[in-house]
Design a protein around this nucleic acid. Structure first.
Lengths: 336, 336
DNA sequence: TTCGACTGTCGAAGCGCTTCGACAACAATC
DNA sequence: GATTGTTGTCGAAGCGCTTCGACAGTCGAA
């Protein structure tokens, strides 16, 4: 395996010149650079990652901690991971995979051993136990999702409030005047992640602004619960024509329930959801939806981390604009 | 950040002694070891990964290359990745995530820069372009799946032939005498992965051994194709009572088709599948199935790699015994 | 012409660890 | 009592790279 001294000798320069030619940290004449590059090619030289890390205290590796708990959508996690790896490569970095199971100690370990230059942490909870550590650490990190307070952190996620608004506005534009939000199970609003509340806030704000009649119903993740909510909705809001669903598990059962109650989608009822595209596409009636843009979040998270590694300041909160994909489940309100 | 010389001074020994106490590569007295451990604890010492890699030419990192192409089952890939990470940690290793997209150059890069000690490659195709490189490399690697020839490689996968056999034997035990295999799309048998053929071989061999009437039908991944195959089967094998499905995409449509043709599962027809448990569980009629044991494959792959890193020989082919989970879709043949 | 200010290159000093050879001290063997 | 092993420790030499300071040469400005 060729080393930098071999390249230097072969190119007739000193090792430090080779290093500078590679890193661009000092000016090198075109002629010298050319000779160095040629020597590198001829010898098949690849710098030794460990030696580099030792001398420069930069490993060019970043850690990605992925969630494991039940209830997460695995394909979305995978999409995200792939986009992080791809984006990291564009910056000459590799990605070390950590599981949530490793927790704070895992993060501490890879940082303390100088294995990684920075951290990306997924599935951040409101009062995530990893937060104090991440705040304290001298290595930069970026989190996906928002904890109770993003102070001193760098967080990125879909703008769930805007997503709630966008759904209502879409329905309003189609002429709907009475709408309802079917949300996550009640416990999600208590513990967990902030995004559920944000959807509610956006939904309500937009409905109020547009003077729509609106109601919000949490819903357990079971077909039975879906059926119950459907019945309740029709009882309490007989004029209902637009529904926003923010609950992957009950989207299909809910549509089934409405149709079972004699409402056709989209003829009698327009349905829009905040859920992965995969799910929205696969239903009998493809659903107009807003998805978590996993690939974009991943790429942006890496960008933010790279900025921080360069010592640049970045904003604590980055919210990605929702993008709605129209499918067959929404239509203009039938005028009676 | 404390370094090994700090620990040494604090414990009143030389750095090399600390190193030996940590690695166990030379005998150290209990008393010295105790003092070293205490110093490590008090100083919060963590060895620098880069320095270690440079001095020992071992990075304690292994690369995992995951597939991206359409048609793979994402949750299974994820299960697999998680089990690799978990198993690797038990051996004190971390895992670098590579995407298939990086291809041979990606593998070459992480090896040439000495970033990783070994490679695990998923989704190996019959004539995978990465094979020549992997054979030539001086670093050990393990592949998931079998190429045309496993010579000079280390491969691991579910024993698909045994899986095909097990399905037939299960049906035979329940009294079925006429069975059919609904397989992958025709093109899979041509290009692609060896496992499809293996299932066929196991299926046929077991049927012949048990003197069952049997037939094999490839099937495109569409509901229409499923319906067509169902009709064809009933036409050609009117006495058919047992079906083995090795085709994720058509499992549900196929059952629907049979029921549409008046056959109840499992009353009139027993169905067993080779597919992820997730899918088998989620169907209206839960299906008796054999799954790819992703977690086990991952753990075993890491074990094999660790053995190779220790310079031990391992067998070229490791086949994991199939495990069948009985669900509602198979039953004793109704005696007319 | 002289003085910075660049530009382009080199040599040397580390980065923090592992490992090899050396060597005491002591036990077991003839 | 000399010889051979073991056990436990140390010092020094590197692993392959980056980076700092030094310095020679060039160029436009004063």
């Amino acid at each position: 395996m060729a080393k930098i001294t071999d390249v230097a000798r072969h190119a007739g320069v000193s090792p430090s010149t080779v290093s500078y030619a590679l890193s661009g940290k000092r000016p090198i004449s075109d002629e010298t650079r050319r000779r160095v590059e040629e020597a590198i090619r001829e010898l098949g030289y690849h710098p030794h990652a460990g030696a580099r890390a030792l001398a420069s205290s930069r490993s060019n590796v970043l850690a990605l901690m992925v969630p494991l708990r039940a209830g997460i959508n695995v394909p979305v996690v995978m999409q995200f991971a792939v986009s992080v790896v791809t984006a990291a490569r564009r910056y000459g970095h590799d990605v070390l995979l950590l599981t949530q199971e490793e927790g704070e100690e895992g993060l501490r370990r890879v940082v303390d051993t100088a294995l990684v230059d920075g951290l990306i942490v997924m599935d951040v909870q409101l009062d995530d136990p990893r937060l104090p550590l991440l705040r304290r650490l001298d290595r930069p990190s970026v989190m996906i999702g928002f904890p109770a307070s993003s102070e001193g952190l760098t967080c990125i996620d879909l703008d769930f409030m805007a997503a709630g608004e966008a759904c209502v506005e879409h329905l309003a534009r189609l002429g709907h005047r009475v709408v309802a939000l079917v949300g996550s199970p009640p416990e999600v609003y208590v513990r967990g992640t902030a995004f559920a509340q944000r959807v509610v806030r956006g939904f309500t704000a937009a409905a109020d602004r547009g003077r729509l009649a609106s109601a919000v119903h949490p819903c357990e993740a079971s077909p039975a619960a879906a059926r119950a909510v459907a019945e309740q909705l029709l009882r309490e809001q007989p004029a209902l024509t637009g529904v926003v669903v923010h609950n992957e598990a009950v989207l299909e059962p809910l549509i089934d329930a409405f149709e079972g109650l004699g409402l056709r989608v989209p003829t009698d009822l327009s349905v829009t959801a905040i859920c992965p595209d995969e799910l929205a596409e696969s239903l009998r009636v493809p659903v107009t939806s807003i998805a978590l843009p996993a690939a974009e979040v991943g790429a942006r998270a890496v960008e933010l981390l790279m900025k921080k590694l360069d010592g640049k300041a970045v904003s604590e909160a980055t919210l990605l604009a929702p993008r709605m994909t129209e499918r067959g489940s929404t239509g203009r309100r039938a005028v009676a």
